[in-house]
Design a protein around this nucleic acid. Structure first.
Length: 734
RNA sequence: UGCGGAGUAGCUCAGGUGGCAGAGCAGCGCUCUCAUAAAGCGCCGGCCGCGGGUUCGAGCCCCGCCUCCGCGACCA
């Protein structure tokens, strides 16, 4: 029997559940049910990625051990999944995979050994020991990225620490590297031979051009002294496995790949049975799944996945990524409180053109729920069943119109032959199935809803309430209601993976046994509904939501939440910070940390690829390190007035200013704020300038100083420092 | 600035190989009453991003440009 294995990413256990988690998991759940319904044995994995510096930090902030921290997050995620019917108890995931499982340690270590023992496609060793080189500030005790250092004091010198204004030390840390650079050709031929390996196509093209541009080797370990919350490197206890290398392997260790204990626990060889699987993920982590992971699999000689499918992200109404700190993210408890699970599932699958980003807010969901579900499907069920109750005592009438009544039926506009309706149902069913197979879920649902409209019209045209007035039309009336009810049976089957509970409810209201979970839509034949069966009570499937009332409630909840969160900001802020990056879909290794950067495989500039590991500077919870007055006076800050401001050509971010700092000649200063400030509006504005910063060339222009700005929010949006009172140009800040 | 995608009704989007601009939602009107004030019918709504070109004919093909998004680059 063919099997179907689907995975969500294992979610990075540093943030609480959010929309992105819900979405990817719902899609995976949907696909899993879809294929199970069509007769495949399925296996559905979700879980958490639990190692790494970010976890250590997050746990330190809350005063927990890493273990306690990840247990807490896992508890919250599982609770959320249960709330939305995605857990095993509701027929959802088959395993909640955790990278802290002992069997994962076992399998991951074996994976490492295998890769290490085999040559790359170009005949070299896959894993080799090398050195990270990074700029290290001893007083800060951290590595600095390019972005976090000041230009060197003299040509060819070391860059400076922005905190201490002292030269950084070039420090090497021993590290294992994976020779990803040897895999470009192998990967390209994989993409070539399997055009639908990466979907959608636009994403595939991105990856192909990325790999064509060449790949850099990636560091896959850390010194145990810098990251201890991680899997030890086999046979080298000084090192731990870097998070991405560790995390990706979960997709096979979960199936018992080379882990005796997991195989014993599962009671069968899941790997043999279910691999290769389909990876579902947000487009933000496509590269790890479409480049690094396939290369890793080649290295360890494991079969490639069935596919890598990247979906879009949920945006707010203005097109920004939903984020907790912006307060524009949908809150899952609120969602759960005001909408039925099936309504949310339907919305998620219907609203997003799969693969693209999609704007969302509560109101859009509410409107979809009311128009498509309450007025559409729910109402069709309701009117059909009510009439069967009213006119046939709750018993499904006969489908056919006898010979004697055919002309009579024709006269009132009802064809005695149901063929036309049956044919369009078959067509819709085929479209539905095909669209799902092509990941065009929104199209699949659109097709199904076309059928609802068609039957609604059929009923309006046939006017059963008129037919009911005269006994001679009784057979016709029965046939009309039968057709409507039979259509609902088909819809219940098709929609089962989308709305398991509701379609089960329709099923039972039609007087059918059990539920449609095992009914392959391809096996549907017209006339399967039994005449004579008793239909169930009519109960609204999707109650109409009072828009004004519900929106008001939601808004007051939001306001209340904002209030409490501002109140506890001091305590909550750091957690929010690390969580926010993972706010959208699915991140093992939310790209918060520098730590992640070296691992993002391709096309990193040399410097960036060597950027130091594991040492993102701490968010400023208080003072990192003290400096003396002598340190302070080294920095010369002056008031400057913007004389001219313009964009730097060929640069997204740079603005070029001429600034009057009270000197005979204005200075030329560049600042990376073009994405946030209109140059025209800055002319005449007074700024704070670091005036004794060593000049540096940027994009061909010399920058003779630096503009001070606050860095706000997760994106570090710059906000220029200003004065509330009038100050002369050149005034020194002390 | 390199590569890729997109720009069509207020909103979300359809419009294989050129042939009278479409659907759903929202809005308005009418009809009906079995139904969750639902459904059916109708109306409203379009410089199809802009400018050229090819053609009897261009939303579609060609050239140029603008804007947005993505991935890079560059840079915070």
């Amino acid at each position: 029997m063919r099997t179907f294995y689907v995975t969500t990413p294992i979610y990075y256990a540093n943030s609480l559940p959010h929309m992105g988690h819900l979405y990817t998991t719902v899609v995976a759940d949907f696909l899993s049910r879809f294929w199970r319904q069509r007769g495949r044995e399925t296996y559905f994995l979700t879980g958490t990625d639990e190692h790494g510096t970010n976890i250590e930090r997050a746990s330190a902030r809350t005063g927990r051990t890493p273990r306690e921290h990840v247990d807490h997050i896992v508890g919250e995620l599982k609770k959320m999944f249960a709330d939305f019917g995605l857990d095993a108890a509701h027929g959802g995931y088959d395993i909640f995979m955790r990278t802290t499982e002992p069997f994962h340690y076992e399998g991951a270590a074996e994976f490492w050994r295998r890769a290490a023992a085999r040559p790359t496609p170009k005949g070299r060793e896959n894993i080799y020991k090398g050195f990270y080189e990074g700029w290290f500030c001893a007083p800060c005790a951290t590595f600095k990225t390019e972005a976090e250092m000041l230009p060197a004091a003299e040509e060819g010198g070391s860059p400076l620490c922005p905190v201490h204004e002292r030269p950084l030390d070039k420090v090497s840390e021993e590290s294992y590297f994976f020779r990803l650079s040897d895999y470009d050709e192998a990967l390209l031929s994989l993409y070539e031979s399997r055009p639908d390996f990466i979907r959608p196509e636009a994403r595939r093209n991105e990856v192909v051009s990325l790999v064509r541009g060449g790949l850099e080797d990636v560091s896959i370990s850390r010194l145990k002294t810098s990251v201890s919350w991680a899997i030890p490197v086999p046979d080298d206890p000084e090192h731990t496995v870097y998070i991405w290398f560790d995390a990706l392997i979960n997709y096979i260790t979960a199936l018992g790949w080379d882990s005796e204990s997991r195989r014993a626990e599962a009671g069968e060889d899941l790997f043999k049975k279910f691999w290769p699987g389909l990876h579902l993920l947000g487009k933000d982590i496509l590269r790890q799944h479409a480049v690094l992971w396939p290369a890793m699999l080649m290295a360890a000689d494991v079969e490639q996945p069935a596919g890598v499918v990247a979906h879009g992200l949920w945006l707010d109404q203005t097109g920004r990524k939903g984020s907790k700190t912006l307060g524009n993210a949908l809150e899952l408890p609120t969602l759960r409180r005001h909408f039925r699970v099936d309504a949310v599932r339907y919305f998620l699958l219907r609203e997003m053109s799969f693969g693209q980003d999609c704007k969302v807010d509560y109101q859009v969901i509410l409107e979809r729920s009311n128009s498509d579900l309450a007025s559409g499907l729910g109402n069709l069920v309701s009117r059909t069943l009510t009439m069967i109750h009213k006119y046939f005592g709750g018993v499904v009438p006969a489908p056919d119109i006898g010979e004697a009544k055919r002309l009579l039926a024709k006269r009132v506009g009802v064809d005695s032959d149901a063929q036309e309706l049956a044919s369009s149902l078959e067509l819709v069913r085929d479209q539905f199935v095909q669209n799902v197979e092509e990941f065009a879920f929104h199209r699949a649902l659109e097709a199904a809803w076309g059928m609802i409209a068609r039957v609604d019209k059929f009923i309006s045209d046939a006017k059963p309430w008129e037919l009911a007035k005269s006994e001679e039309h009784r057979e016709t009336l029965g046939a009309v209601l039968y057709r409507s009810a039979e259509t609902l049976r088909w819809l219940a089957v098709m929609l089962y993976p989308v709305m398991p509970d509701s379609s089960g409810a329709i099923w039972r209201q039609l007087g059918l046994e059990a539920d449609p979970s095992g009914f392959d839509p391809k096996g549907l034949r017209w006339g399967g509904l039994n005449s004579g069966a008793s239909v169930g009570e009519v109960a609204p499937l999707f109650p109409r939501i009072d828009k004004a009332k519900t929106m008001a409630e939601i808004e007051s909840e939001m306001a209340q939440r904002m209030e409490t969160e501002t109140g506890t900001e001091a305590a909550a802020a750091p957690a929010e910070h690390s969580g926010a990056h993972a706010t959208q879909a699915a991140v093992p290794g939310a790209p918060t940390a520098t730590e992640v950067k070296p691992e993002q495989p391709p096309q990193q500039g040399a410097t960036e690829a060597q950027a130091p590991p594991a040492t993102q500077p701490q968010p400023p919870e208080g003072v990192a390190t003290y400096i003396t007055v002598e340190d302070l006076v080294k920095v010369e800050l002056k008031v400057g007035e913007v004389l001219t401001a313009e964009r730097v050509p060929k640069s997204d971010k740079l603005l070029r200013f001429t600034v009057d700092v009270g000197e005979p000649q204005p200075r030329q200063i560049l600042a990376g704020i073009a994405e946030h400030y209109e140059p025209e509006k800055l002319v005449g504005r007074k700024l704070v300038i670091v005036s004794n910063l060593k000049p540096r060339k940027l994009r061909g222009f010399e920058s003779q100083g630096m503009v001070l700005a606050a860095s706000v929010g997760d994106e570090g949006r710059p906000v220029l420092a200003t004065f509330a009172e009038e100050v002369p140009n050149g005034a020194r800040l002390k």
